[in-house]
């Protein structure tokens, strides 16, 4: 459900102030913005200066779960957020700043795809938990 149909104030970060806590909102489709806000929050926490409520404005590209046909959200809304793909945005920034070439980024994708294929193959071949160990790990054993 859209958050503004479910809550008295959809600006979640402001709810921190009721407890005297620091809150911040950030573009959740921009990894450098999230990283910047996270670095500030982590620094404060590590120094013992308190917690942070960080609201990252974002959008889920698929349905709630794989059983959800995702027919209820408007195409216009999906298109708006689709243009803000965080991975494409970072790729563009890296290329524009001449920090790496698109070729290098493609090689990273190839490396990842190979790693995932290998993981899937090995996981499919891996053993099921033996049935005689059905109750194992329910209680601490060491």
């Amino acid at each position: 459900m859209a958050h503004d149909r479910a809550t008295s104030n959809p600006e979640i970060w402001r709810k921190a102030s009721a407890f005297g806590m620091h809150g911040e909102e950030v573009d959740g489709m921009d990894v450098l913005a999230v990283r910047g806000a996270a670095q500030r929050a982590i620094e404060r926490a590590r120094a013992g200066e308190g917690p942070t409520l960080l609201e990252c404005l974002t959008y889920r590209y698929r349905g709630h779960s794989l059983a959800d046909p995702d027919e209820l959200r408007s195409e216009k809304e999906k298109e708006f957020w689709g243009k803000r793909d965080p991975i494409k945005k970072l790729a563009q920034e890296i290329i524009d700043s001449k920090l790496a070439t698109s070729e290098e980024l493609k090689n990273i994708e190839k490396k990842i795809d190979a790693e995932i294929s290998e993981s899937v193959k090995n996981a499919l071949e891996a053993p099921e938990p033996p049935s005689e160990e059905l109750t194992k790990y329910i209680w601490a054993e060491d």
């Binding site: 950030v26 573009d27 450098l32 970072l90 920090l99 990842i112």
Partner: peptide, 22 residues
């Protein structure tokens, strides 16, 4: 949304973030 202070982008950071998101 107002622009807030973003994290710095250098080659190493950029490639690390790109790889993790990918």
């Amino acid at each position: 949304l107002q622009d807030i202070k973003k994290a710095e982008l250098d080659r190493e950071t950029g490639l690390f973030l790109y790889e993790d998101m990918t």
